Computed example of a mutant assay.
Amino acid sequence: MSRSRKPDWLKTRPPSGERFTEIKQTLRNRDLHTVCEEANCPNLGECWSGRDGPGTATFMLMGDRCSRGCNFCDVETGGMEPLDPEEPQQVADAVAEIGLDYVVLTSVDRDDLPDQGAGHFAETIRAIKERDPSILVECLIPDFQGEPELVRKIIDAGPDVLAHNIETVDRLQWPVRDRRAGYEQSLSVLRQADREGDCYTKTSLMLGVGEYAHEVYQTLSDLQQAGVDVVTFGQYLQPSRSHLEVSEYVHPDVFDTWQRVAESEFDFLYCASGPMVRSSYRAGELFVESVLRDGESVEAAREATRASE
């Protein structure tokens, strides 16, 4: 299949709607960033427009420039700026203004900072929880170079979901990710989150970067042993010609197969799998919310979530 022409199943509608405009204006007024915009997420219109609910956004902390240069990511690299000490409270205020009851926080990598930004991330979690303890907070964190005390800062702040993306199979960590990242380093973060955290753990893989099926299977096995609860699969899309090329546009049926394998063979609590699925994805958030807030069983939450997709 041609790399330059996307198949029909990857077409999306442009963002629109009153809710989309409201969220965008709130973020601009508070000088906040979202990974939805910075990474050109294809689901931005769906999530911000809130066609199936109140709408959501994934806040990106610590600026819009990353200290690393992963070959799949559209976030700019270098030119790091000082942290904004007002950002944690600004995020908490924006969450209240938008009216979110499930918040996703992520960040750029900040290897340039003494604690790599772990304290700032933790402060944002606490600011949201202090304003309204009922808000569920999902955190998609960097690897903090695998330093346990920095990961512990995030765990101690009390997130409801702690996510860290392994991104791809072991063999393809480079050239997909920055050389400072790594398969075992990411697994160590997920193991620590499972061991020390009172929260669900989550990770995500991209397909279409040159992986083989047996490698994906092995990755699922490794993630299961690391104690991961939720896994997502999505199609890698090349942000620009200077980024990693797409190796394959994976058919939706293959994504369906991986969902069945993840849940049936490896007993992950939930797997969101599809070409347009991303690590911060509303279906996964609805599943966790159903379990945590509504007290549904895992099976009931799975069925309710799929019915809403």
Rank of each mutant, 00 (worst) to 15 (best):
E138K: 13
G99F: 09
L61R: 05
E285M: 10
T56K: 11
Y270H: 15
A193H: 02
S279Y: 01
S279R: 01
I166E: 05
T12S: 10
P54D: 14
V228T: 11
Y281Q: 13
Q192K: 09
I154A: 10
A193E: 01
D253H: 10
R195L: 10
P175R: 01
S186I: 02
T305W: 01
E184H: 15
E86N: 14
Q259R: 14
F144S: 04
D8P: 07
D256Y: 04
M1R: 13
L61Q: 06
S290V: 00
T106E: 07
K202R: 08
E22G: 00
L207C: 11
I98P: 01
T58L: 08
T124S: 08
G119R: 10
D112A: 08
M62K: 12
G274R: 01
L220W: 05
H164D: 09
R260Q: 13
P159F: 06
R171Q: 13
C47L: 02
K129Y: 06
V230Q: 11
L105A: 04
E215V: 06
D222W: 09
R241Y: 07
E184I: 02
L83Q: 13
E248H: 14
H214E: 15
R171H: 13
T257W: 14
P54L: 12
H251D: 15
C66R: 08
S240N: 12
P175K: 00
F255S: 11
A94P: 07
H33F: 14
F72L: 00
Q224A: 15
E265F: 04
I154E: 04
G79L: 04
A213E: 15
E285K: 08
G63N: 12
F255C: 12
T58M: 11
S280R: 06
H251K: 14
T58G: 12
R65H: 15
E184R: 15
R180I: 03
C139H: 11
V189C: 13
R5Q: 14
G119V: 04
D112H: 11
A127S: 14
S49R: 13
T219N: 10
C66I: 04
D64W: 03
V231K: 08
Q238P: 06
I154Y: 05
W9I: 04
D115F: 03
G234C: 10
A307T: 11
L150C: 11
R241T: 10
L207W: 07
P7E: 09
Q224M: 11
R68L: 13
V104S: 12
